[in-house]
């Protein structure tokens, strides 16, 4: 069973930050002649190595700018690492920004085929699953309406339905999956939990340690692009709490009062993240 599906070997990602962004020919040639083009090297990731076995659920912890999203993008194949080797076996489905691949002028129906093709599904497969997708998205007659007239929730629902119709080998989740209303969220969570049971490999990025504890069985910590810890989820989460959220942990004695407040805060958070999604999906 313990077959390796993701092998990350000594990966490094370098970004060349131009001191001043040059994006037109005139400036480029003037600067080239004056020998003024200078780059500042910035390593978003450095010497990262780990392997993930089939069925493992790996949580990735780290502060903002630690390189978590960069690592996910490399594994998803969107970015190419500047150094090192990556080996991924099986079909990867990234659930990052749902509906980002939609064409606004296309109807929901046409977008199912388009987005399915983007994810690399064959045509017969989409034909076969078409009704399931429509049904799960709960769009009804709206499926024949151009996507530009959809609400952000409708778009996300359709995106989620298409992306999860096929059981991937590797599922990439960035932050919380708060799609649509409470009812749909429940449904989508169930679908993902079902995938877990069928032994899908999961890469999960979240700032919420609680979620990582609940979903993952293993975790790693990234700090400024360097892998500093790797192990069972409980152990790593404790380390992370102690090292990085020291201030919060210090306030923990007031446990009783806080515990009541936690659900409220969480509610707010999910609402916020939903609101933030609107401009992004609208792109």
């Amino acid at each position: 069973m313990s077959k390796e599906v993701i092998m990350v070997d000594d990966i490094g990602m370098r970004f060349n930050l131009m001191e001043k962004k040059v994006d037109n020919l005139k400036e480029y040639f003037i600067k080239l002649l004056k020998n003024e083009i200078r780059y500042q090297e910035f390593w978003a990731l450095k010497n990262i190595s780990f392997t993930v076995n089939k069925g493992e659920r790996l949580g990735i912890l780290g502060l903002n700018g630690a390189g978590k999203s960069t690592l996910l993008k490399i594994i998803a194949g969107v970015l190419k690492a500047s150094e090192g080797e990556l080996n991924v076996r099986g079909k990867v489905v990234p659930l990052l920004e749902l509906g980002a691949g939609f064409d606004a002028q296309y109807t929901g129906m046409e977008n199912i085929y388009l987005y399915g093709a983007v994810l690399g599904y064959p045509k017969d497969f989409i034909n076969e699953k078409f009704n399931d997708i429509v049904e799960f998205s709960e769009l009804g007659d709206f499926i024949n309406v151009p996507v530009k007239n959809y609400s952000s929730g409708m778009k996300a629902r359709l995106g989620f339905s298409i992306a999860t119709i096929m059981d991937p080998d590797i599922l990439i989740l960035d932050e919380v999956l708060s799609v649509g209303d409470a009812k749909f969220r429940k449904k989508s969570e169930k679908r993902i939990l079902d995938m877990f049971e069928r032994g899908v490999t999961v890469l999960f990025v979240s700032h919420s340690i609680e979620q990582i504890r609940r979903i993952c069985d293993r975790a790693i910590i990234l700090d400024k692009g360097v892998l500093i810890a790797d192990g069972p989820v409980e152990e790593i989460c404790n380390v992370y709490e102690k090292e990085y959220i020291g201030e919060l942990a210090a306030k923990k004695p007031k446990k009783k009062k806080k515990k009541k407040k936690i659900p409220e805060i969480k509610e707010e958070e999910t609402i916020k993240s939903e609101k933030e999604e609107i401009p992004e999906t609208g792109e």
Binding site: A76, G77, V78, P94, L96, A100, G101, V118, L119, E283
Partner: peptide, 9 residues
């Protein structure tokens, strides 16, 4: 660019 940034194609 929207698609290129999110999914490998």
């Amino acid at each position: 660019s929207g698609m290129i940034k999110k999914v490998y194609v």
